[in-house]
Design a protein around this nucleic acid. Structure first.
Lengths: 287, 287
DNA sequence: CTTGCTAGG
DNA sequence: CCTAACAAG
C-alpha cells in the first residue's frame, strides 16, 4: 500500500494477538530511530503487544530504513523530513492501514515530517485515525519559539475542523508542552522555559476545554511524578526531574474507551519514554 | 618557559629515569589526543620510560588541553592548528626544553600546526633538536596532493639549510609517505595512491641519499612486515595490511647512536602505532 | 548530554 | 571506518 508496507494484509489476519477487544497504542519520541534500535527498541516493539506505535524524531531517510527496522507481522510507514538526520515521524502497526496521509497542509508540518496519519478499520462502522505528531521545540531561541507558536496556530484550526467533522482520532505525539503543575517536576523554575510558557499551556487548555479533546493518559492516571521526558544533562532521569510532554490527544469518543495507561521506563531507548495506552474498541453502554 | 611547561626544570633533576645514557624518543600520530587518551594513551606514556615524545594530529586547542593531558614529571608543549579539531603537533618531554619553536616559516606548517621543534641540552657540547612533523595527507584529491607537494618542496629547502648548518636533529613524524617496497604490504596495488607515489618516494630518497639524513628505524631494523599505520577500514590492522609512514628522520650524527627501534602494537591508541627508538647519547668511538 | 551530519583522514 | 565540529534538541 505504501513503500513501507512490508507484509500483505492477509498476513495480519493470521497474526496472533494479545486481546482483540483492546487496542494498544504507543507514542514515543525515539531521538533517532537508529540510536534507539541500538538500545533494543525494535526488540521491545516486537514483544510489546502494541497494535499501533507512533514514533517521532526518527531522523531517518527512506534509504536508511533497512532490514533492522522491519518487523515480521507489522506494517510501517515513514514520513521523513526533507533534511537528512532531522525530525521525521513514523507509524508502525500490526493492523493494516486503510490509508496513510503525510503532513497537515502547512510548511513546517509537511517539509519537516512532523505529522503523519493512518486510517484504520476497527469494524465499528466508522473509520478511526491514529496520527504521530512532532511539535517543534522552541528551546533554542526566539525564532524557534516563533516557529513553534505558528505551528500551534495553524494546527489548532485543523483540530477545530476535525471536531466539526466529528473525526475519530488519536493524535500521539511529542507536543513539547507540559499542561499543568503536575506535569513537570520543577514548575517554578521553568515558568520562562519554552515548553512551560503560559501561552503554550493555554493552547493545550483550549484543546481540552474548548474543542473537547481528551488527554487520555490523565483520564485514567492522576498521580504526580509521572513524566515522559528527562533532560540528558546531569542526573535528570535518575532523579526523575522530568516533564510530561508526550500525549495521546483523542477525540471525545476515546474518553470512555481508555482503560489503562503507563509510561514504560524499564528500558532507556531515548530521552523520552514510551507512553502506552490501552483502549477498549467496543465499550459497553453506560460503562 | 612556555604556557605548557608544567613543572620547573628543577623537578626533572629529581626524577628517576631508566637509563641516563639512553635517549628514548617516541613518534606517534594520535588521531585526536582526546580519543587516544580515552584509549589509555596518557597512561602508557607515563610508564613508557620515553624521554621525548612527538605527537601529531593532536586535534586539540589550548583550551581543551586540560588536566588529563598533564603528566607529573613531564614538560609539554602544544602547537595547535588555527582551525579547531584539526591537525596540530605537540612534544612531551621528561627533559626540560632549552627552547621551543612553532612552525617552519611557511603557511601550511605554521597555520595548521604541522611542525614544532624543541631544543635540548644533553651535556654533549652542542644543542640537539627534536621535532614533531605532520606532513599533509594527499589522499582526498588533487588539491590535497598539490598542497602536500608544495609542503615537500618548501620543507626540503629547510632540510638542506639545516645540513649546511650541521644542525643535530631528530624529526619525528607522520610523513604520509612510504619509502620502499618493504614499507607497505600492498605495493603493487598502491602505485597510484597518495603516500606511495613515485615522486613522493623520490623525495624521501633525496633526503637520505643526497642530504644525508638517516631513517634510524630502518638503520637497525631490516625485516619486512613492520608498519606504523593501518587503515580503519576492513580488517587492515588484524591482517597487518599496513604502511610504514611514521619515521624518525635524523641528521647523520644520530646514525651510530641508534641502538634499538620498535613499533609498539600491544595497545591500540590510534590508526597509527608509536614508533620507539633508543639512542645512546655518547656512543663509544668506533662503535 | 545526546543524535546525526559533515569534513577530513 | 574513525575523529571532532556542528546544529539541534
Amino acid at each position: 500500500m505504501t513503500p513501507y508496507t512490508i507484509l500483505p494484509k492477509s498476513h495480519y489476519l493470521h497474526t496472533e494477538h494479545h486481546d482483540k477487544s483492546i487496542l494498544r497504542v504507543v507514542s514515543i519520541n525515539v531521538n533517532g530511530l537508529r540510536a534507539a534500535e541500538k538500545k533494543g527498541f525494535m526488540h521491545w516493539l516486537a514483544q510489546s503487544e502494541a497494535d499501533v506505535v507512533c514514533l517521532q524524531e526518527t531522523r531517518l531517510t527512506h534509504e536508511q530504513w533497512d532490514d533492522k527496522f522491519k518487523l515480521e507481522g507489522w506494517f510501517a510507514h515513514l514520513f521523513p523530513a526533507e533534511k537528512a538526520g532531522y525530525a521525521g515521524t513514523s507509524i508502525y502497526s500490526r493492523l493494516p492501514f486503510v490509508s496513510v496521509k503525510n503532513g497537515l497542509g502547512f510548511d513546517l508540518a509537511d517539509t519537516q515530517g512532523r505529522f503523519v496519519e493512518a486510517e484504520f478499520d476497527l469494524g465499528i462502522g466508522y473509520p478511526i485515525y491514529i496520527a504521530s505528531l512532532y511539535l517543534p521545540s522552541g528551546s533554542s531561541g526566539e525564532e524557534a519559539q516563533a516557529r513553534k507558536d505558528l505551528f500551534l496556530a495553524q494546527y489548532q484550526t485543523i483540530l477545530a475542523t476535525w471536531r466539526k467533522e466529528n473525526k475519530s482520532v488519536i493524535v500521539c505525539g511529542d507536543y513539547n508542552i507540559v499542561h499543568k503543575r503536575i506535569d513537570i517536576k520543577n514548575w517554578s523554575g521553568n515558568q520562562k522555559s519554552s515548553g512551560c510558557l503560559p501561552h503554550e499551556r493555554a493552547w493545550l487548555d483550549s484543546l481540552y476545554d474548548e474543542l473537547g479533546y481528551v488527554d487520555t493518559f490523565r483520564e485514567v492516571r492522576q498521580e504526580s511524578d509521572v513524566y515522559s521526558w528527562w533532560s540528558n544533562r546531569g542526573q535528570a532521569r535518575a532523579k526523575n526531574v522530568g516533564w510530561r510532554i508526550d500525549y495521546q490527544v483523542c477525540s471525545p469518543d476515546w474518553k470512555d474507551r481508555t482503560v489503562n495507561a503507563w509510561v514504560y521506563k524499564a528500558q532507556w531507548f531515548s530521552d523520552h519514554a514510551p507512553v502506552v495506552i490501552d483502549y477498549v474498541i467496543n465499550p459497553k453502554q453506560g460503562e
